[in-house]
Design a binder for these strands. Structure first.
Lengths: 240, 240
DNA sequence: CGATCGCTTGAGCAAAATCAAACCTCGTGG
DNA sequence: CCACGAGGTTTGATTTTGCTCAAGCGATCG
C-alpha cells in the first residue's frame, strides 16, 4: 500500500523509486500510537522531531487563558505536523489527537538525509509546506467572512478533497472522527450552534455524518454552498 | 540607517557584516513604488520574484465571489511578502498596498545567492517564514474565538510590537495607515461595527488612532484586553 | 465649490451565543 | 443481562453580539 504522504506529494511532483524507498524507510523507523484526546506535543515544549501522521485524525490548536479553544488545522494521514518547526525555541500551539492515531517520528538528521540527496524531495516538501500555509490562510477567510453553514460546508469539502488526495476517500465517503464540539472549535462556533448548522446541511441532503463517517452525495453542490474554490489546495501538478 | 529587515532578523540571529552587506545590495537592485489601493500581485498570477516591503503598509487578502473581503496579514516595512512562493503555479491570494509603498524586488537567483553562501542567512529567513506562519495561525484564533474589542486590541498590539521590532515605533506610537474599513476586513467585522468598537477602545483610553498614527498609552493594559500573548511572535533570541 | 472618501450615528434585525435540560448510545462492571 | 455513567447529541427559551440599511458629517482635493 502506498504511503499517504507519497500519494500527496505526487500530486505535485513525481518521486523516484529511490525517493520513495527512503521516505518509507524514514517513516518506519519509529512509530508511535496515541489515543483520542492525547497530545503529540504541547504549547511551550521545544519541538525536536518531525511527526508524520500515518493513521487517524489529529489537529493543531490553541487555548486562550479563559478556556476558549480554536482548532487551527486538521491533520489527516500523510500530513507532516511540524516540518521545519524545530528551529524555534518553543511551540506556540499544541498538536492533539482527535481519534486513535499512529504517527512516525522522524529526526532532523533523518530529514536532512532525505532532502540532502534529492532536489525532488526538497521541492516536494517545500510545496507541502506552502500548501499547509495556504490552508491556514483559507481558514482565516473561513472564520472571518463566512457564516456558519458556509464555514461548515467549506471544511467538509476541504477534508474530503484532502482525504481523496491521499487515497482515503471511497466514492463520496471518508472517515471523519471528529465530535461536533471539536468541529465547532475548528469553525469558531459553539457546540450548540454547530449542531444546528449541521442539521441544516443534513436537511438539505448536502452531507451525511454518522458513525465517524462523512458522506457528501453532491460535492459540487456543497462547494457552491461553502463558496469553495479548490485553487488553495494547489493540487494540479506543475512539475512532472 | 539599518534596513528594517536586518533589524527584524537580528531578533533571531546575529548577522555578519558580510550578510548585511549582501542583503542591502540585493534589496537596492530593483526598487518600485505603488500607491494605496494598488496591487503588488494578484490572485491567479504566477509569482516570479520576492517582494520586500521597504516603506508603507501592505496586506495579503482574498475576496469571495460575492465581494466579501478578508485581509490575511498586514505587511510592515521589513516584511517579505512571498518568500518561497514562486514554486507555485499561481497565487491563491493577492497582495495590495494600504498606503503609498516602496518595495524591493529580489529575483530567485539573487535570493539563492544570498542564502547559498550563508547558513546564518538561511536560518534567519527560515525563522522569518515560521514567524509569518505563526502570525497567520494566531489570526485564525483572533477571528474565530475573540470578540470585536478583543480582536481589535490584539491586532493593535501585534502591529505595534512588530513595528517596534523593526525600529519604527517611537515610544508608544507608530504609523498605522489603515482605514477603518480595511481594519474591519482584517478583523472579520463590518466597517460600522469596527467604528463602534474603536470608539469603545478610545473611550477606555486604551488607544488613540488619528492621522494614520496609532498610539497605545498602556500596552500592558491593551494586551490584557486582547488576551495577547507575545510568544507567537518568537522575538526572544535563540541563537546568538 | 462640488465630489469623493472616510468616519460617525441611529434604528431595526439576524445570527450566533448562552443557559439549561433531556436524551441517546455504547462500553463497563456488578 | 442489566444498570450505570460518561461522552456526545439534540432541543428549547432567551440574550447578546454584530449586521444591515440609511443617512449625515467633515475633511481634502481637483
Amino acid at each position: 500500500m502506498t504511503l499517504p504522504l507519497v500519494r500527496k506529494l505526487e500530486h505535485f511532483i513525481k518521486l523516484s523509486p529511490e525517493d520513495k524507498r527512503r521516505l518509507e524507510a524514514a517513516t518506519s523507523a519509529r512509530v508511535r500510537e496515541l489515543g483520542a484526546g492525547e497530545d503529540i506535543i504541547q504549547e511551550g515544549e521545544k519541538p525536536t522531531q518531525l511527526n508524520l501522521l500515518l493513521q487517524g485524525f489529529a489537529c493543531r490548536y490553541k487555548v486562550l487563558e479563559d478556556g476558549r479553544r480554536q482548532i487551527l488545522a486538521f491533520f489527516l494521514p500523510g500530513d507532516l505536523c511540524d516540518l521545519r518547526m524545530f528551529i524555534l525555541k518553543e511551540m506556540d500551539h499544541s498538536i492533539g489527537c482527535l481519534s486513535r492515531v499512529s504517527f512516525a517520528q522522524i529526526s532532523p538528521e533523518a530529514l536532512d538525509e532525505l532532502t540532502h540527496s534529492s532536489q525532488t524531495m526538497r521541492k516536494a516538501l517545500w510545496w507541502n509546506s506552502l500548501v499547509e500555509e495556504s490552508i491556514a490562510r483559507e481558514w482565516i477567510v473561513n472564520v472571518g467572512r463566512r457564516n456558519a453553514a458556509e464555514r461548515m460546508a467549506h471544511v467538509f469539502c476541504e477534508v474530503f478533497l484532502r482525504m481523496q488526495a491521499v487515497g482515503l476517500a471511497k466514492r463520496d465517503t471518508c472517515d471523519f472522527p471528529v465530535t461536533q464540539a471539536e468541529l465547532g472549535d475548528a469553525l469558531g462556533l459553539t457546540d450548540v450552534h454547530t449542531n444546528r448548522t449541521l442539521q441544516e446541511l443534513r436537511a438539505q441532503k448536502l452531507v451525511a455524518l454518522t458513525g465517524r463517517k462523512l458522506t457528501i452525495p453532491d460535492l459540487a453542490a456543497l462547494e457552491v454552498v461553502g463558496l469553495f474554490n479548490r485553487n488553495y489546495l494547489h493540487l494540479e501538478r506543475v512539475v512532472s
